[in-house]
Every structure is written in structure tokens, then in C-alpha cells.
Design a binder for these strands. Structure first.
Lengths: 205, 205
DNA sequence: ATCTTGACAGACAGATCTGTCTACATCAAG
DNA sequence: CTTGATGTAGACAGATCTGTCTGTCAAGAT
């Protein structure tokens, strides 16, 4: 493979192709500091890449942002579904509040800074460009997955359960981001159990 | 919150002092497009104010942002508490889900773009400056108010009820922002009722 | 051995952003 | 009438940001 000439200012040895280094560096910086606050110059400096190498692989900063969101969506969903499946296998039966348990693992990570898609929409002003659409699509897919999980957990009206659960999920994410309190997952678990109980009792509609 | 900005919707730059025009224009632009995306030049242009008039009244852009957050906090809280009080007076008795009804009024506004404080933290990168502290303080005060309201509604363990309710509140705000669906207030009302029921049944702990 | 490809290094243009500065106008109070 | 406070208009410096450009280098392919 391509040998690496430039070392990375004491960072880990630069691994992978230039494109891969740019994308992983951008992912870290975009998530940690926000898209707008992260300049191309900083990305290429930390990735140990020339500017033209960046523009050979990405058409623009917006293109890089979209690539970041695409990858983030795929990786996060894969992680979330796998972690949830692990819990289900361990407990033997699925339960709505397991969604919160998995979120709790995420919240405990040192670099947690909320949901990248929520943060993007929050800083995006209005500009309904392709980035915004990717964020919306991510949430739609998550909601569809939650509905399927609710169905597998035997919750009546799983679509409504998913709509309710999404409010709790986003709330727990944002509350953790705003307070730094790790206890939000526990509150979310309690609320998700309440959703299942309420729907079973027919208290909803 | 409608009456809050009704002031300079189509108003001419000749309304109020220069400081007031700058602050109300900044409030509108900061909320609509985000803090980072809104430049000083645009603010002073739309406010019809000279640059030096701006820097005579505010020490820096950061100072303006803080003034914006201060005012936003005061006005939003005042509006929220008044609107809630109106509902309570109308119904005769307080009920936790009324929090969601009031949020629904907010969500229905044409220029709704989520919570200014959440958006600020989301776009703020990390930089723990004074702006971030104001956002956290806002959420703390809101939670304290919700706890008091839960107590007045006769909910057992009002502090825990408030912690749970805050998850639902933030979730409903963000879900409305991310989906544009006006139905989130209804879902939140259902969840808030579930909190009250769960705590009354002692299902919480 | 030469050509092509991918990469690095860094200068550069053009735009934009914050903050400072000068110059001039208005108006109220001493 | 002069002085000070407040305001407008706009030039300017310095930084930063995106995107383009030239030059050089290493290694594989032909």
C-alpha cells in the first residue's frame, strides 16, 4: 500500500489511504466541535494530508460532510442494533427499556457529545441542503427500527410505541448532552417501560 | 412565544434605540440561523445601525450572544409560565400534561426552530465559555419550575417527576425540530400523564 | 527507462468575519 | 455656544476559510 511519509505530529501512526485518514479525522473533529467550527485546514493538518489530496477525493467540504454523515449513520446503526441484540440474547426476551440500556453505554463514552445528526440540524441554520436530508433520513430509519423492535417485544401498536419511544430517546440524548448526568438512561428506561405498560393497558390511543 | 418577537417583524430600523434594534435583530437571526452562521455585518445591516454603534453597546459578538441568551431566557420563561397558568386557570386543576399543551403552542409557531439553548450547545463545539453556562442555567431553572408545577399538581416525588418530565420535554422539542411534525406535543402529553400515573402507582422508585 | 498515478508541500486568490478607526451629523444641557 | 453623548457611513487591518494552482517526490506499470 501507499507508504506514509509525513508523521502526524505525535498522533497515532497515519493509517490507511489519504481518503480514509481525511474521513476518520473529519469524523472525529466534526463530531467533537461541530461542522461549521471545523475548517478544512485543520482536518488536512491533523490527517497529515495535502490539500490537493483532499480535493481529489472529495468535491467540497459539503461533500465531506455528507460522507461523514453517511458513514456515521451506517456505523452507529450497526453498533446500536448489535448492542441491542446482545442484550436481548442475554435476557432471553426483548423489552422496550433495553433501548435505554444500550443508549446508556453510548452516553458513558468519554467523547459523547450528543447525536451528530441533531447537532447538525441545530447548527445548520435553515439551508435545506443534502446534509439536513441525511439527518432526517437517519431519524426515520431509527424510528423504523424501534418500531420493529417494539413489535418483537410484543408491544401493542408498535408504530405508536416507536413514535413515543423516539421522544424519550431524543430526550435522553439531549438531556445527557446538556447536563452531563449519566443517569438519563435510567430515566429513559423507566419511561420506555411506562410506554409498554400504558399501551398494554389500552391507556393510549 | 408569539408576542415575544412580534416587535420588529416588518418594522423599520427606526424603532427603538440602536442597542434595542441590534438586540432584537440579533435575537431573530441567531435563533433562525444559528449563532455562528450569523455575522455582525448582517446584524448591523438589518438593524440599520452603524458598526461603531454596535461596539459602543456590546463589548464583542460573544457579549451580544450572552445578552441574547439572557433576554431569551427571561422572555421564554415568562411566556411559558404565563401560558401554563392560563391553562391551569381554565381547567381549574393543574395536570402534568399541561406542560405539553403549552409546548404545543410553541411548536405551532411558524418560525419554531427548536430550543435556542440546545441549539447553542449543539453548535458550540466544546469551548466552555459563558454562553454554554447560560444554556445550562436555563435548563436548570426550567427543571426547578417543572418540579414546582409537579408539586402543585399533587404528583408524588415531584423532583423525580421533573427529571422524567425534562426528558420528555427536550425530546418533544427536538422531535418537532427534526420532523416538523406538529403531533409531538400530543405524544409528550401522553408520556407526562404516564409519569404521573406511574409515580402515583408507586411503579417508579 | 519512461510514464502514470497518487501523494505531499505550500503559495495564492477571493471571500468573509471580527474589531478598530476616522469623519461627519444631530441634539440636549450647561 | 460649546461640549458631550449618540448616531451613521464606510474604510481598514488581521485573521480565517474555501478552493485552486504549481512543483516535487516515490513507486508501480509499461
Amino acid at each position: 500500500m501507499a507508504p506514509m511519509y509525513a508523521s502526524n505530529e505525535g498522533d497515532e501512526p497515519t493509517a490507511g489511504s489519504a481518503r480514509e485518514r481525511v474521513l476518520s479525522t473529519a469524523a472525529r473533529l466534526f463530531y467533537a466541535h461541530g461542522v461549521r467550527a471545523t475548517g478544512i485546514d485543520r482536518i488536512i493538518a491533523e490527517a497529515g494530508v495535502a490539500k490537493m489530496s483532499f480535493y481529489r477525493h472529495f468535491p467540497s467540504k459539503s461533500g465531506l460532510v455528507q460522507a461523514f454523515l453517511d458513514r456515521r449513520h451506517a456505523q452507529w446503526m450497526a453498533w446500536f442494533e448489535a448492542a441491542l441484540q446482545r442484550r436481548v440474547a442475554q435476557a432471553g426476551v426483548p423489552r422496550l427499556s433495553m433501548l435505554a440500556d444500550v443508549l446508556g453505554e453510548w452516553f458513558a463514552q468519554a467523547d459523547f457529545r450528543g447525536c451528530a445528526f441533531i447537532n447538525l440540524v441545530a447548527e445548520d441554520g435553515e439551508a435545506d441542503g443534502p446534509e439536513r436530508a441525511l439527518a432526517f433520513a437517519h431519524k426515520l430509519e431509527l424510528q423504523a427500527f424501534v418500531a420493529g423492535f417494539a413489535r418483537s417485544a410484543g408491544v401493542p401498536d408498535p408504530d405508536r410505541a416507536a413514535a413515543l419511544a423516539m421522544v424519550v430517546i431524543e430526550g435522553a440524548i439531549v438531556r445527557t448532552q446538556m447536563t452531563g448526568d449519566a443517569a438519563m438512561a435510567g430515566l429513559a428506561a423507566r419511561l420506555l417501560d411506562g410506554i409498554a405498560i400504558g399501551l398494554r393497558d389500552g391507556r393510549a390511543s
